[in-house]
Amino acid sequence: MKIREISEKLCADIVCGEDQLDCEVFTACSSDMMSDVLAFVKDQAVLLTGLVNPQVIRTAEMMDMRCIVFVRKKVPTEEMKCLAEEAGIVLMKTQMRMFEACGILYEAGLKGHVEDGVCDA
């Protein structure tokens, strides 16, 4: 799925990374705990979260993620936007709640790769 399709399906506004919307991604994960993202995630390209602080961007960068979707009307700060631009990560925001957003993307073919049999929220 192209990142552009994610933004369309979630009625999301792009915050930064417009030039990377044609990147293909295949897997996603969702969590508000960055500790768990670091512990259980492997090879996911998209992070859905309701957490807003610079560590969200850094966590995604450490995991080589391509895109972060902020759910529940959360708005990333200017500092986060700058960090994401430097790291080449697309940021978008949607009014949808986590469960709804995940369900839509899963139904559309985006999968969650699960390591160690543990899944995210």
């Binding site: 508000d32 670091l38 512990a39």
Partner: peptide
Amino acid sequence: LGFGAGMGLP
């Protein structure tokens, strides 16, 4: 802030 889940050292 999204940390302190007791996963750091492990």
